[in-house]
Every structure is written in structure tokens, then in C-alpha cells.
Simulated assay, not measured.
Amino acid sequence: MSDSASTGQRSRGPVLLRRAQVQAGTTDQRLLDSRGGSEWVHTDPWRVLRIQSEFVEGFGLLAELPKAVSVFGSARTPVDHPEYAAAQRLGSALAQAGFAVITGGGPGVMEAANRGACEAGGVSVGLGIELPFEQSLNEWVDLGINFRYFFARKTMFVKYAQAFVIMPGGFGTLDETFEALTLVQTQKVTRFPVILFGVDYWSGLIDWLRTTVRTAGKIGEHDLDLLHLTDDVDDAVAHIVGSESGGSEQAQAERAAVADQPTS
């Protein structure tokens, strides 16, 4: 009797199984045997392949994009709201400056930015997400993809953008804002402006970060310099264009933020 048989051991590719973990049959036998349930499509190993496919599809779709800016904001913003008009102007100005515009592909601010880019003849991109309620890509998206997983989608927002513009929004917008700030603060991305558009809307958050978070020593002295607050479309676009220089205000703020980081 072989050692593997006596100890109840089996290899499954690179995986070693012993005792109660040993399963009857072989991997290719289970693959070719069509009988049995379909529960396997909901297992974690199968999800890994789905996750991989989302990255492959996203990378393949977006690899040839020109330089781009991701615009975030609320899906609940109505078409007749001033924030919709501002996002539409922003999308148009970014397209005219040679940037593709990437959004979450939904309604509200996302639709407005896509619309502005599309009407200005730019590249309008929508990265949608599967949600419990139906939300299809808006009609102004020229290049779109839907994701199952938030983290795969968020990677595409960062990988193919040179900047983020954050319009007024809710939890999803805040999530994207702080993820971007963390990536810039830790130099996972560089020369990467994070622009808060809407002075009245964002000032309370900035004040809390300054008077509570920074005062308590939870962020560095220069970390808030990573945010650019504005109400002006031209100013936002100029800040993005200017950030490409190594001596730009953005690059200086990033170097100062890195110098603030704890060393142990």
C-alpha cells in the first residue's frame, strides 16, 4: 500500500488534501461529468474567475483610452438642478481639453458629465455596477461596461484616469473620494489631483477634517493640501492640466504629504 493511500492523501494540482478533505474522483472527471447540481458556480474559486474576467474585460476595453478624468457625483441629482448643469459644463470642458470623461455610467451627475463630453465630441465612458435595483448605463455613454464587483470597477476608475473631480454626492461619492485621497497620500498614484467641486457642499467636510481629524493628529499637516476646492469649471480643468508638471502645486502637495507620514 502506498504512503498516500495509507494516510488518505491526494494531490489536486498544486493543492494537497489529506484525511477528511480528500474527495472521490478527479478534477477532470468532475468537469466532464455533466450530472449533478450547479451549486459550484457560486463557490469562491469560481468567483475568482469572474473577478479575473472583470479585470480582463476592463483592461481590454480601456487600454487605448486617451488621458482621462473620472467624475463622481450623485445619481439622484435631477436634470433641472444647477449641479447637473455644472457637471455637463465640466464634461464638455474636459473633452475640449483633450480628456476622456469616465463616470459610473448612471443618472444624475454621471449622466450630465457623460452628456457634456459626448456633445463636445469627446470620449464618454461609463463604468456601471450591478445593483439590487435596476440602473442601466445612461444614453450618453459611448464606451461602457457593467461590473459585478465594486473593487474591480474602482480599480478602473483610478488606473485609467489622471485626476478625479468629485461633484456633490452621497456614500458612494464619499467612498471614492477617500479611496482616492488614500492612494495619493500613500503615493500609490502621483500627480493625481482630487478636486472637490462645490464650495458650499464640501466646506463642512473640509472644516471637520481640519478642526477634528487633523487637530487630533490623525492626518498630516499637509494632507488637506491634496484636495482642491472650487466652484469654477475652468479652474478645475486648469488645475488638472497644470498637475502634469513635476513642479506643479499638486506635485509639491504630494511631496509634502509624504514627508508628513509617520516613520515607524
Rank of each mutant, 00 (worst) to 15 (best):
P45G: 07
D142C: 07
G104L: 04
G73Q: 10
Y160E: 11
T77M: 15
R115C: 05
V79T: 15
V165H: 11
G36N: 04
G73S: 10
G126R: 00
Q96N: 10
G122D: 03
S124P: 01
V125W: 12
A68W: 04
W140E: 12
G25S: 03
F55G: 06
I129H: 00
V71W: 03
S53M: 14
L65V: 01
L143M: 11
F59K: 06
V71H: 01
P82R: 14
S38E: 14
A68V: 05
D80E: 15
D33Y: 01
E111V: 08
T26C: 00
D28F: 14
V79K: 15
G128D: 03
R148S: 07
G98N: 04
A86K: 13
L61M: 14
M156A: 12
R30S: 02
L31F: 13
E83W: 14
I102W: 04
A97L: 12
A86S: 13
K154T: 09
I145A: 07
F133A: 06
G73Y: 10
A163S: 12
G104C: 05
M110L: 06
V141N: 02
W140R: 11
E111L: 07
A85F: 12
G36Y: 05
V22D: 04
D142H: 06
G116D: 12
L32I: 01
V109W: 11
T26G: 03
V48H: 09
E130I: 04
G36I: 04
Q29F: 09
